[in-house]
């Protein structure tokens, strides 16, 4: 029973990782940029969640607002940070992204203060007992949102014309363009969707912790990178599986490996082992 509970806890954490990492892998797939500042957008979602919920009393409104506003900011990040340097070597964008992430953290601190923000009335605090297992409503909602949103993304990519254009652009951008696909639009769409998912993750984490701090994204900034490498860079399905797997491994690791391995180190230990066996990542195509 206890082992099952640990497994469920792992899935909850894994759902959060998935919501964050999917956006990151989308950006990598399209532009080959390691978008570290994505974690800053996740934090922005947290702030949007607390501020809008406190103002309106509705976490649902906050979720929608966070998805739209963080999505829009994500498009702005593409337009003003990445687009001007697309033709430079990849490390230029990486350095710009790290710089942007640090600037965002400090901006949050200056604007919202170093102590972090909390909810006036924390939403989704009821708990449900399922087979002797206490699950908070917020945890259930986190898992449900991850499933619905990422599932929806899969449908969008697989079953619609937009999705077709998107996949075409990812595979062979020049060919897609010659077929009349507006690849700039695809990039904006890509940043909007990825950032909106991170914004939703930010709201859910702020509810789970009842705390948004300027540095909330610091773990996400590097752990999500480990996850997308595990999932095979640019591979959404692989990223999803890697995120959930890592969540579960961490849950067991926190209890059984705590003496010698930090929870945040587990991701990288797994990463090293997997890359030794499969250099292309768990689900990456071998080059």
């Amino acid at each position: 029973m206890f082992l099952v509970e640990l497994f469920v806890q792992g899935l909850i954490q894994g759902s959060v990782y998935a919501l964050i990492a999917v956006g990151l892998t989308l950006v990598y797939g399209l532009l080959r940029i390691l978008h570290v500042a994505h974690a800053g957008l996740f934090t922005l979602g947290g702030y949007a969640g607390v501020l809008v919920t406190n103002a309106t009393g509705s976490v649902a409104v906050a979720l929608v607002f966070a998805a739209l506003s963080v999505g829009a900011v994500g498009m702005a990040v593409y337009r003003f940070c990445y687009e001007p340097i697309l033709r430079r070597p990849p490390y230029v964008a990486l350095i710009a992204s790290i710089g942007l992430f640090i600037a965002m953290e400090e901006l949050f601190r200056i604007v919202f203060g170093p102590f972090g923000l909390t909810y006036d009335i924390v939403p989704l605090q009821g708990s449900v007992v399922i087979g002797g297992m206490y699950l908070r409503s917020a945890e259930l909602v986190t898992m449900a949102l991850a499933a619905v949103l990422i599932g929806g993304l899969g449908l969008l990519a697989g079953r619609t014309r937009i999705g077709l254009a998107w996949r075409a652009t990812v595979s062979v951008p020049e060919m897609a363009e010659s077929f009349g696909i507006d690849i700039v639009k695809v990039r904006y769409l890509n940043f909007f969707i990825g950032s909106a998912l991170a914004g939703v993750a930010g709201v859910m984490v702020s509810v789970l912790n009842n705390l948004v701090e300027p540095t909330m994204g610091s773990v996400a900034s590097y752990k999500a990178l480990a996850i997308i490498v595990l999932g095979g860079l640019g591979n959404v399905r692989g990223t999803l599986v890697a995120a959930l797997t890592l969540g579960v491994i961490e849950a067991y690791g926190t209890i059984y490996l705590a003496g010698f391995l930090d929870r945040d180190a587990i991701a990288f230990a797994v990463l090293i082992v997997i890359l030794m066996v499969r250099p292309q990542g768990l689900f990456g195509r071998s080059a």
Binding site: E5, Q9, V205, L208, L211, A251, Y252, T254
Partner: peptide, 9 residues
């Protein structure tokens, strides 16, 4: 900030 596994244990 998430202590699910420890809380469970």
């Amino acid at each position: 900030r998430q202590f699910g596994p420890i809380v469970t244990r």
